[in-house]
């Protein structure tokens, strides 16, 4: 393999990893406050691409207005899912909440199929992002550079929000101990809703860029990325935002390199993430940055 080709694969891996990281953050934040896999997260991500599609293609709103609108709408959708599917049974056994999450995920998928049809639609990517630039002998889409930049900026903003603002402090408090946080005067419902909104917002950022990178959207497109990003969050140490980012990059780069170096295994690409997950869970169940907690009786 030549160096050029390697760099091309690497840049691909980095941009894919950035997308995984953005979505994984949503999983990890929700897990932090609720100890729950938000199965519907992948579908919220899918809905974001549909919002963008309708904004640009159907309503002919220019992309620089549509995209912010999509972010807000998706955040609202995430909060709605939380209010309908999770809040009423927050005190129920964990299995019930998980089932409700799976139900919400299937509901969103099937609703999209009914409302928008199962046929894949082309994502209307602005040419500004999809232009190809020559770097030496390598042809790379501009998007490949923008994606990691957007990811890093979002991550910095998020870290500021969580570590420096009052809302962020409330989120950290809720994730540590809900009861005590409530006693300290934190509105648990608002904080959890905000966390869902924030996670969905980032999923929408990821969704828009995903749509531009793989310009075809369909109702089930969120399933596999959703699962993979959850895996990325677990690999990094669930509940830990830095961990989610590391996990996302490991998964994205690893996947691209697997296909690049071992082309015979291309068919097994989607299994790679699961194999990695099982290896991680067996060797270090709390993930790379996770802390070990003992169970209290």
């Amino acid at each position: 393999m030549t160096l050029d080709l390697f760099l091309q694969h690497l840049s691909n891996g980095i941009s894919l990893g950035s997308l995984y990281a953005l979505i994984a953050i949503g999983y990890t934040m929700v897990y932090g406050v609720l100890r729950l896999i938000n199965f519907a997260h992948g579908d919220i991500f899918m809905m974001a691409t549909y919002f963008a599609f309708f904004g640009i293609v159907t309503f002919r709103i220019p992309w620089f207005i549509t995209f912010p609108l999509v972010l807000v709408l998706t955040a609202a959708l995430g909060m709605t899912v939380e209010a309908v599917a999770y809040r009423p049974i927050r005190e129920a056994p964990k299995i019930s909440i998980l089932i409700s999450a799976i139900g919400a995920s299937f509901f969103l998928e099937n609703l999209t199929i009914v409302l928008f049809g199962g046929v894949p639609k082309p994502f209307p990517a602005p040419t500004l992002f999809t232009d190809v630039v020559q770097v030496g002998t390598v042809a790379i889409q501009k998007l490949t550079f923008y994606i990691p930049i957007v990811t890093v900026l979002s991550l910095l903003a998020l870290l500021y929000l969580i570590n420096k603002t009052k809302t962020g402090m409330a989120m950290r408090a809720v994730s540590m101990d809900q009861e005590t946080a409530r006693v300290m005067g934190i509105n648990i419902n608002h904080t959890i809703a905000f966390t869902f909104g924030l996670g969905s917002f980032l999923a929408a950022v990821g969704g828009i860029m995903w749509g531009m990178k793989f310009p075809q959207i369909q109702p089930l497109m969120g399933v596999i990325p959703g699962l993979k990003c959850f895996i990325a969050a677990v690999i990094g140490g669930i509940g830990n935002i830095g961990g989610a980012v590391i996990g996302g990059f490991i998964l994205g780069i690893g996947e691209i390199m697997l296909v690049a170096f071992l082309p015979n295994l291309t068919g097994y690409r989607d299994a790679f993430a699961f194999v990695l997950l099982i290896l991680i869970l067996l060797s270090k169940p709390t993930g790379i940055l996770g802390e070990k907690t003992a169970e209290k009786v």
Partner: peptide, 28 residues
């Protein structure tokens, strides 16, 4: 053998992963 050391949602996702792996292997 490997997955039952896990609990709750970890177990859910690991078993889901194994089912996916079986499916991918059967496809190939």
């Amino acid at each position: 053998a490997p997955t039952l050391r896990l609990k709750g949602d970890y177990l859910a996702i690991a078993t889901l992963g194994f089912a996916e792996i079986i499916r991918v292997v059967f496809t190939n």
